[in-house]
């Protein structure tokens, strides 16, 4: 079968060169054909992508009808574990701004999406990049860190948006970027920011008053994500169902928690929509403590559409739990 004549070899090489040449031409034609499909930039609104719906809501409250807003995570999704789907890259490639909660909360997914977006505006340091945590007073900033402690955040607890007054600093950060991206609308954004701040002050006073009965009450939480809500509304998280942050509840931890709930007469267990409820329900059945699944983000539940709705919802369900009889 092997025929190593120079003529046959030369013919074969010629065929190879033609084949490679056709391959390169095919690629060129493909690029030329799809080039006209490139879409134009969308409208005169700023396109702002946020990592989580809470930030999206604040973007909408400050930007109003001058922004088109989109969130990558859903409100009922654990923000630490979001899959960086390529479809998000399409959104980010066209974005004027990107708002991240920062503090490494989205470390496993946001950076790869931003890098893949090919969009200079939204890279860290770019005009459209907003680290919403900038200037926010943080809690639980560790003095030393080791992964044996579990899923510890080196810059501090990243769930700061759960304090409405810290939400004002988030809005300020978003305002500064919107004003930079669209200076002609600076006054419009400033007026919206002032209205947001005023609304938050008014509503926070009402929320604090409504949750007076919770003041000083010991509470069990599934995961360590409530220190800012705890500080604002003066309840006390005494333990967690997770033995360490990010580690699923273990039987020994549940036994310990059940003992604590009984000895301290704890009435409430709080959790988030993205954790299963088996462990919390077990503790609830054994002790009578009520399980309350709070909205840890905007859009966590139907009807929780804005930053204000999130606190309205949480205040309502906490009060309902306080006023309901024990579960056992």
């Amino acid at each position: 079968m092997h025929t190593d004549s120079p003529a046959a070899h030369s013919q074969a090489n010629h065929r190879d060169i033609i084949m490679t040449s056709k391959f390169v031409k095919f690629l060129y034609c493909l690029l030329v054909m799809v080039a006209p499909l490139r879409s134009a930039a969308a409208g005169d609104k700023l396109i702002v992508v946020s990592s989580i719906p809470t930030l999206k809501s604040i973007v909408e409250l400050v930007g109003r009808d001058k922004v088109e807003s989109f969130a990558i995570a859903t409100g009922y999704q654990n923000p630490h574990f979001v899959d960086p789907k390529p479809s998000f890259i399409m959104k980010l490639s066209k974005a004027d701004g990107f708002v991240t909660s920062g503090l490494d909360l989205e470390i496993g997914w946001a950076s790869s999406l931003i890098q893949s977006s090919r969009n200079a505006k939204i890279q860290p340091g770019g005009d459209g990049y907003v680290d919403a945590s900038r200037g926010v007073p943080l809690l639980q900033v560790p003095s030393s860190i080791d992964r044996a402690q579990g899923d510890i955040h080196i810059y501090g607890n990243p769930h700061y948006w759960l304090d409405p007054l810290r939400g004002k600093q988030i809005a300020q950060n978003i305002f500064e970027t919107l004003a930079k991206l669209s200076p002609e609308n600076r006054d419009y954004f400033a007026a919206n920011l002032a209205a947001f701040d005023k609304e938050i002050d008014t509503r926070t006073a009402a929320w604090e008053k409504a949750l007076e009965p919770l003041k000083g009450q010991p509470v069990i939480a599934y995961h360590n994500e409530w220190p800012y809500l705890e500080e604002r509304f003066k309840f006390v998280v005494v333990d967690f169902l997770e033995p360490k942050p990010g580690i699923p509840p273990t039987p020994s931890q549940l036994v310990k928690v059940i003992s604590e709930v009984k000895s301290k007469n704890i009435q409430i267990i709080i959790s988030s929509p993205y954790f299963t409820t088996e462990a919390a329900e077990l503790v609830s059945r054994q002790t009578g403590a009520r399980l309350v699944v709070l909205a840890s983000s905007v859009e966590a539940f139907d009807g929780v559409n804005t930053y204000y709705d999130m606190f309205d919802y949480n205040v309502r369900v906490l009060l309902e739990a306080l006023n309901s009889p024990p579960t056992n």
Binding site: P84, D104, G108, W109, S112
Partner: peptide, 9 residues
């Protein structure tokens, strides 16, 4: 051990 890398989809 070390830095937390970003995940691919």
């Amino acid at each position: 051990i070390g830095a937390h890398g970003a995940h691919a989809y």
